[in-house]
Amino acid sequence: MNGRNLSATPTLTGRAGALFHRYANPGRFLRLGDRMQPWLTWPALVLTLVGLGWGLFFSPADWQQGDSVRIMYVHVPCAWLASSGYFALVVCSVLSLVWRHPLADLAAVEIGPVGACVTAVCLATGSLWGKPMWGTWWVWDARLTSVLVLFFLYLGHIALIRAFDDPQRGYRAAAILALAGGVDLPIIKFSVQWWNTLHQPDSITLTGAPTMSHSMLWPLAISTLGFTLGFAAIVVARLRAGVMESRIRALLSSPRRARDAATEQAA
């Protein structure tokens, strides 16, 4: 009876697996990444500068927060990327644990530090916003604490994935950590609804009109798009470097062949 139940899954995983492995080929990724890089880097640069410039100089001050609201144009994109970056890490971990996807392992290595950086900027800008508005740098409410936990999850992942001599073991342990830490993502998202917090609820929701004037929403959207493309650009650049480094390691680990080739050429 189990056999019939599972009979559909092998084809599904098989087909999906074939699709993933098509892009798991590092050589193919290097070519794709080479072509993609300028399309990420330049729009990211332009949109980030437009979004932040608009937010800093042209968007209106808030009726009660005054100019401090401008911190939002860096804080919110970083908060969004902290969670999205971790979500990408979770996706890589599933690809790694189930399909042994080699590119997903290299991607997880490169996403970790970038995600930790945006989470740190999110926490720091949140503090810089909280001090003048709330009257405190930090408070142990559910939103702030769950984002701090996310930061520690990133740090743990960074350390664990590099902790073993055999990289495969590191990939596996870090993937399990990232997957388990995934429970923090819904906690971050819903913390402001489930519990009372000092942090305000989300202004932008799927269900209602954004409780934000459009004159502030536009620079926020542009800046968020710019930061997101910038995150992708940095991760793709690091991943290209990571693929090359793994190839360099492979070349160096067979030194005899390399040396033979060199002497052959010299002769």
Binding site: L52, I71, C117, V118, P132
Partner: peptide, 19 residues
């Protein structure tokens, strides 16, 4: 602008890390 040091610190930090 009010609270200018906080605003500049936020923007400077984000741009510095990005750089």
């Amino acid at each position: 602008m009010t609270h200018l040091p906080y605003i500049l610190a936020s923007y400077g930090l984000a741009l510095g890390v990005a750089l």
